[in-house]
Amino acid sequence: MSRIGKKFREIVRGGKKAFIPYIMAGDPSLARTHELIGILEDCGADIIELGVPFSDPLADGPTIQKAAQRALAQGVTLRKVIELVADVRKRSQTPILLMTYYNPIFHYGEERFVRDASEAGVDGIIVPDLPPEEARDILAFSKRSDFDIIFLVAPTSTGERAGKVAKSSRGFIYYVSITGITGSKLTMDSSIASHVARIRSMSGTPVAVGFGISTPEEAAEVAAFADGVIVGSAIVKRAAEPDGLLREYLSSLRKAVS
């Protein structure tokens, strides 16, 4: 079982919920990312999602687009992010996921990527432009090591499609709370909870919810029905603030997700 799987088992057994913060690797520098990972851990992150910058991030809103451009300007690449994780693993066992797009992985080579990333201590990946239909090879490679490929389910996904995604996804299932891109305004309604319940019933895999969650209140509302809460753009926005403010914000999210 992967580190992510073990973490979720531990959380579910304890009747708790997973707090999954996202930051962009290399924004504004890889050294700062190293520090930020430490801060996220101090503030109670259960799993850390690390964005890998890509030139054309289709699923991302302006906040993460700009963060990616800043990171690319620093020369941050998929290889460098994998090396960063290897470095972090010298001191930390917190599960780490990468989120990037398919072309950098395709270019790196799927088999080589899964091997290098899992050797470095990366626990899984989210690739928003890779649907399960196109993921047969990378899924086969990932099964050789404990490397999770996490797929996304959208609010517009039909029952049949959600079922297919739920069965392919490993580690957890990423439920996208809105039709839209990261950092959009979240509109809470009861359909999110019922979708999450339906998806959870399709496989034994936990469901985490993300896209648009920014306040502790929203995080608490989502935590009431999901197994995990993912917060991205709102943290990326605050990553440049003084550490004290950032820690305060992260702790308030952590408290809300319990």
Partner: peptide, 19 residues
Amino acid sequence: LGVLQGTKSFLLQDDDGNI
């Protein structure tokens, strides 16, 4: 060869798969 905007085809890209 690469994958961009939902298509596999020929792309102008750098060594890391950025466009």
